[in-house]
């Protein structure tokens, strides 16, 4: 009797764990392609990149110190970025400052995308050689960082930003704006 119950018990526990993780994966956790986040709580790396719309001018994160802001890595080659775009526009409408980095893209493509679909960004940097991307530990797009008023990275989201992810990871940093 005991001998039958023990393996059965182990099986039930494992099955429970399996379905729990499966469900969490459905909600966007435990993505097997995710790598651990290294950046939370660290000072945001600086960069100085040319603007997408004006190569003569530079975008620098230091210009946004003093209030929380978002840094969003995107590219026109990335389908999830297109999916995410309307939500970024919505955030802009709520007064959330977003700095965009058009990553590994063609300048003309990036410009056209924002002209046709609207520009959710306070400023857009152009990063064709992954200069900022590597510095920020980015390995896929879209990826969004939240930098607080003191220039510390407080949250990061891989993949398209949506209402659920926003509420979970970002919203409380912008409570005055909701």
């Amino acid at each position: 009797m005991n001998k039958a119950i023990l393996p059965l018990g182990i099986f039930v526990v494992l099955a429970g764990l399996f379905f729990y993780v499966l469900q969490q994966m459905g909600e966007g956790e435990y993505n097997p392609r995710d790598i651990p986040t290294e950046f939370i709580g660290r000072t945001a790396p600086g960069f100085s990149l040319p603007k997408l719309f004006d190569p003569q001018q530079q975008v620098r994160p230091s210009a946004y110190k003093g209030k929380p802001w978002l840094l969003n890595f995107w590219g026109t080659w990335c389908p999830e970025c297109w999916r995410e775009h309307p939500y970024l526009l919505q955030l802009k409408a709520h007064g959330i400052p977003i700095v965009g980095v058009d990553w590994r893209d063609e300048r003309a493509d990036g410009q056209a995308m924002l002209r046709e679909n609207g520009n959710p960004f306070a400023a857009v940097a152009f990063d064709p050689d992954s200069t900022a991307a590597i510095d920020w530990g980015v390995y896929g797009a879209p990826e969004t960082f939240l930098v607080d008023a003191d220039g510390i990275i407080r949250a990061k989201h891989k993949g398209a930003l949506n209402e659920a992810a926003w509420r979970k990871k970002f919203a409380h940093w912008f409570e005055d704006k909701q």
């Binding site: 790598i35 651990p36 986040t37 290294e38 950046f39 590597i134 510095d135 920020w136 530990g137 390995y139």
Partner: peptide, 9 residues
Amino acid sequence: MVERYGDFV
């Protein structure tokens, strides 16, 4: 690289 991408890299 580890500072940016973790030990995973």
